[in-house]
Design a binder for these strands. Sequence first.
DNA 1: TCCCCGATTAACT
DNA 2: GTTAATCGGGGAG
Length: 206
Amino acid sequence: MTLGARLGRAWYARPSPEVARDLLGRILVRDLDGRRLSVRIVETEAYGQDDPASHSFRGMTRRNATMFGAAGHAYVYFTYGMHWCLNVVTGARGEGSAVLIRAGEPLEGLEVMARNRGVDDVRRLCRGPANLARALGLDGAWDGIDLVRGAGLRIHAGAPVPRSGVRATPRIGIREGTERPWRFVVAGDGWHSGPRIARARHVREG
DNA sequence: TCCCCGATTAACT
DNA sequence: GTTAATCGGGGAG
């Protein structure tokens, strides 16, 4: 897997659903203590303007200010009293749109990720947005950093997934806006988060 | 100031 | 399937 070119400003400055779909197959790179951690993005969710599920829905606050800034920056938020989650800002400045990175396939630096997570199972290292952020050693200090020109965190072209290989579903963990199919996963991929594939149920007698 | 609840997770029954 | 953990944001008063 070659990294390819680092993604540029214009690439991020598009509607969030478009960026979310296009992020699949791209390589998220974290430089940590002289080590390179890399992850192939396999699951994303788009959040946008006039979107009741988005943190930006009720306007700009101290917490979500980064969402309203320039595209190509990281929006990292704290939730449930213990978890950090990583987004990339999309669209035009002032719009308040972003893409949540929900899961990835670990490529490099697995032992560092395992230490950060306190888990050995490779499949679980970066499955779920909070787990992925934890594995990469990301927290609030990373909110607002520039993915295009900054150091320590970036996204490279990797190998984009063709449209036919992408599955769109409703977003997870929200109450409103569930009608929008803005969660994108690599079809047939075993790495994404969310409900496990339903196992065969026992046939109840009677 | 008070109070509810969250773009989650893991560990339960 | 259900629930505790844990705390800041933000609306209500």
